[in-house]
């Protein structure tokens, strides 16, 4: 297909071509333009909950991960106002959960943390909730540390759509919204999860942790030590319209 006839929209003044059916973030990443995101994962149908990817489309705020690309749309993303919003959202997530990075196996490979670095978040700033969220260590191979959950639902989606299991779900409402597992006992050991499940791999933060392999990569060589998430996300972005589950 001739590139010139592909429809396109403007992102911070640059023309972004897209395939029909793509959302703004999908088209932007494919075209090599980063928009911060947390709950969006190229292999899954966009969820639209974290709001890190908020942009202004023709002046109106919208989540870039769920906003269908449309010809002629004028999208702003790299503005002080929007980055300020994103910083505040990251701060809110840090204040909501109990994130003690120095003791977290995900540190260095964690999307939330990397977003904080990239956006220049120096502190949660808000009062911490210090919610009590006990850890589930019942499973021989997998640890669940609910303290770090950002409620992106990726594990729920992966378990249902890829693993065909339904090990996880989100329950509760408002600030009590929480991750639960599919067992009457409430213990991960009593579910049919396997360490090879997609659900185990997909968590962007340090909730679903594979045991016995912690802290393997030395500091300095971990994923976001090497390059900031804004560069890494483009590295990972599918170059073609992606295959999606679900």
């Amino acid at each position: 297909m001739n590139m010139d006839v592909r429809p396109s929209f403007l992102l911070d003044g640059e023309e972004i071509p897209f395939e029909p059916g793509q959302t703004v973030i999908q088209a932007a990443l494919t075209a090599g333009h980063y928009i911060p995101h947390l709950c969006y994962h190229p292999e899954f149908v966009p969820h639209g909950s974290c709001k890190l990817c908020t942009v202004k489309a023709n002046g109106r705020p919208a989540a870039a991960c769920t906003l269908p690309a449309q010809a002629g749309l004028e999208v702003e993303s790299e503005t002080e106002e929007l980055n300020d919003l994103r910083r505040t959202l990251v701060q809110m997530l840090f204040a909501e959960g109990n994130h003690f990075c120095p003791a977290c196996e995900k540190s260095g490979n964690c999307v939330l943390q990397a977003l904080g670095y990239d956006l220049g978040v120096m502190t949660a700033g808000f009062r911490h909730f210090f919610l009590d969220r006990p850890v589930d260590a019942s499973h021989p191979d997998i640890l669940l540390d609910f303290n770090r959950c950002v409620l992106c639902k990726l594990c729920v989606r992966a378990s249902e759509e890829v693993d065909g299991k339904g090990v996880f779900s989100l329950a509760g409402r408002g600030i009590s919204r929480r991750l639960i597992v599919s067992a009457e006992s409430g213990r991960l050991a009593d579910t049919d999860i396997a360490v090879t499940d997609k659900a185990v791999e997909v968590c962007p933060v340090g909730v679903i942790i594979r045991k016995h392999i912690g802290f393997q990569t030395p500091i300095g060589r971990r994923r976001y030590d090497v390059r900031p998430i804004s560069a890494q996300a483009l590295e990972d972005a599918p170059r073609k319209p992606e295959a999606r589950h679900g």
Binding site: M92, A95, R173
Partner: peptide, 17 residues
């Protein structure tokens, strides 16, 4: 705060804050 469904960060955390 009581009625927020908790889906999105701004409202889930914002109403509680």
């Amino acid at each position: 705060a009581h009625e927020s469904c908790g889906f999105c960060t701004p409202c889930r955390v914002g109403t509680a804050m």
